[in-house]
Design a protein around this nucleic acid. Structure first.
Lengths: 352, 352
DNA sequence: GCAGATTGTGGTAACGTTACCAACACGGCT
DNA sequence: AGCCGTGTTGGTAACGTTACCACAATCTGC
């Protein structure tokens, strides 16, 4: 039965603070090492002592201090950093949920940060997460300067890029098949006879936007028609600016007959513009607004099926994207290997 | 000019791993203490050395190891745990964003976990976060057993409850004025002449659900009418089950003429049920479904204004709720005081 | 009943950091 | 010249944990 020489302060601390392995050891009358062994799996510990230790753990409500544990060489923190551009976009909230689903099964916790599409903020978050010694990073990159995500900067911390690739960065990546999705959506419009199709999307500097525009363009090319330059509006990041852009398009002398919208923020803006346009021309007594403008939008979103206009969405599974990103990271962590980066591309589906 | 006796392994580590304060010290030709002082604010350090240290920090890309730092007594981790019930509900995603907005300004990072309304999972997350020595907790509690959130269990870790209170737990709390909101929404329906008003919501064991039901009931009482028991459906947690419940109500011999829905998940289910009902009775050629059933729903949600039926929502600001929760926690951390728990109640607004 | 193998246990050190104390240099003062 | 304060610097220890080693306790086989 050992007695700590500094039993007094420990006694005091126990009142308010988290118990340490020393407290458990003293309580069970063993050394801290024995406690550590019991918690590590209980090999080479006499059953009687093991029981005493477990009782002490339960009684004190002891939990390993993960921060102290991870300080020892070769130990992991059990933390990963997740940087998304904006959780308030339900698409990224789903992504976060998918990541958590996979990683919490591995008993890994998430440090979450929103970059808000700001490269400086992303860089700051990465630096902070490295300082906290995360075991890995899952990032939806904003693009621009990527040096903070380079192998030189991250050292041995595995990185998974989600939703967007980055030129010059070799890392596991999960993306969706933007080009094909946009191609199919646009082709649908063309097959219905439309030739003046508007495009609304984010800045082309964003990976997915560029790819979706490429698919939009390819569909035109394959059909032997040309994209109409004055109907292309890129740079809208939220429904409000998208609505403005769409209202502008509707004012044109020769407005588009169909719209391809490259993400859910833009689609919602388009629908709002169409409704305000339809209402301003509505007959008295007519309650349901109508519009003859066909809309196809990338990304599904909640209630897309309840919209008052005909709308087709190119749907894909954001939660699955998060799950896949999580799985790629877990695989890196488990195998600890230097395999070539893996690329996963998830399918899209045009919902009619 | 000191030279580390173990320069060899450090040299090797620097290739792949994160540099330590010793590496910086060696690089700048000073002791680790001087580096620490420079980074702590640079008091009592000769400008020349300070410059050398800062240069070394920049060159090596050194970042404090926050885990090691927080191990010292009296030091904080700069981490707080955020437990929400489900990020895929945009309401809670907004809440998370509001929390982050306030805490990232304080240079505090978020450990985020989803409880999925499962008390056991919540308990597990709390235990884990305590093990990581978070400086504080912001929790949307699921209810049920609350012992893991008791002062005895948390010790000195400050807790802020968001969106829901807990009986028997004394903690800073931010809620919205559920009772008043539900009262106003229901009163609106009653003032329009409705007397057979359905109620759809989550289980009454959930704090907000109970309060919203209370407001619903109070509006009836004040108007001198009675709640119709067979029109009350509680326990739907997602749109699908809410839709089922609403379809059931529509099948009743004497169906409701109005619906009060206690949260956005239920409102969406109600609208889906109304639409499928309207479509099944639609005349050939009629494209816009109609419904005579009046709906008022708690929580605003994106596109609520674009629904094909008349709908009033009781809106409130989830991001502001998150911000307030963050501010309450920051205040506790800063003042380190034992003030009585503060309660903040945010207003709702019936959108007509 | 004893040597030797085997298992169970504790001490020590180290992970990266910083509070505290001691030591040092340097200038100004008697 | 010697003393003392001020300002700057480094050594040491501790935070809570666990790998490694050494030793104690127990169990085999003769």
């Amino acid at each position: 039965m050992t007695v700590r020489n500094d039993a007094e302060p420990t006694q005091q601390r126990r009142m308010s603070a988290v118990p340490t392995i020393h407290d458990v050891a003293a309580h069970a009358g063993v050394s801290p090492m024995t406690v550590s062994r019991v918690l590590a799996g209980g090999t080479s510990v006499r059953p009687a002592k093991m029981e005493r230790v477990l009782a002490a753990v339960a009684e004190l409500g002891y939990r390993k201090n993960e921060n102290a544990r991870s300080l020892r060489p070769g130990q992991r923190t059990g933390l990963i950093g997740v940087i998304i551009t904006n959780v308030s976009n339900p698409y990224y909230a789903e992504l976060q949920l998918g990541v958590e689903e996979v990683l919490s099964a591995e008993n890994i916790r998430l440090l979450v940060g929103n970059s808000g599409e700001d490269p400086a903020r992303e860089r700051q978050l990465v630096a902070d997460f490295i300082g906290r010694h995360v075991d890995g990073l899952i990032v939806v990159p904003t693009g621009g300067d990527t040096s903070h995500l380079s192998e030189r900067s991250l050292g041995s911390i595995p990185l998974v890029l989600a939703s967007r690739e980055l030129e010059g960065i070799e890392a596991d990546t999960v993306v969706i098949d933007d080009v094909k999705g946009a191609f199919e959506g646009t082709s649908q419009l063309i097959s219905e006879g439309h030739t003046r199709i508007a495009y609304l999307g984010n800045m082309v500097s964003v990976f997915t936007s560029k790819r979706r525009y490429d698919g939009f363009e390819k569909a035109h090319k394959d059909a032997g028609i040309e994209v109409v330059p004055e109907l292309v509006r890129a740079g809208q990041r939220d429904p409000a600016t998208a609505q403005d852009a769409m209202e502008e398009l509707l004012q044109l002398p020769d407005p588009p007959t169909a719209v391809f919208s490259a993400n859910n923020r833009n689609t919602i803006g388009v629908l709002r513009a169409l409704r305000s346009n339809a209402l301003s021309f509505a007959q008295p007594g007519e309650t349901a607004p109508r519009s003859d403008i066909r809309v196809v939008g990338f990304d599904n979103f909640e209630l897309s099926d309840m919209m008052p206009f005909l709308l087709n969405v190119i749907e894909h599974d954001a939660r699955e994207l998060g799950r896949q990103a999580g799985k790629l990271l877990v695989r890196r962590l488990r195998e600890n290997n230097n395999d070539a980066p893996r690329k996963v591309q998830l399918p899209t589906h045009l919902r009619i």
